[in-house]
Amino acid sequence: MPPSDFTEDLAAALATAGLAVDACYQCRKCSNGCPLVFAMDLPPDQVIRLALAGREADLLGCRTIWVCSSCETCTTRCPNGIDIAGVMDWLKEQAVARGLAVPEPEVRDFHRAFLSAVKWGGGRLSEPLVMALYALKGGRWLKKLRRSAAAGEVATALELLRRRRLRLAPPKRLTGAGEVAAILRRW
């Protein structure tokens, strides 16, 4: 009997998205070159292996996909042309689209804040806006302030402000702001 989270369609769904994984022969070149493997619960080669085995729930809930920095080393080096970093992205998108709990909510929330900031900011990213949206999410800023863990970030922000590198004015609202907002309608 396959485990209950076995999904025969996973590899097929990936292939449909242009992310075929069936050529993997487990050489582990991806994992050996990965700069963030130390922070992962599954090395990249096991992500591909579990994808082939249809272990969808394990993959959608793993830490690996969120601490991957998309440096593209694995994708570049795969001797079988598997877009491993692309598989990581696909899994992240699925996990969020299905509303699943993720082990790295900070990373997810930063991405969300970024897309919302572009959408509400008129088409370009305002760095202070993304930081504000991220901080407000889940009362993160308040919690940090209580632990006085925010001191370093505030100090860096002040240093940047002093050097005229923090632009507090919102970016220019684009003529095409509506087009961009339509592209980012989900956020």
Partner: peptide, 25 residues
């Protein structure tokens, strides 16, 4: 003129369609 954000890591992590559409504009 009127260039928009490319979506960066956020778009290709969470929204493949947006990650394609933003640079296309």
């Amino acid at each position: 003129p009127d260039w928009n954000c490319c979506g960066a890591s956020a778009a290709h992590s969470l929204d493949e369609q947006a990650a394609r559409a933003l640079p296309l504009r």
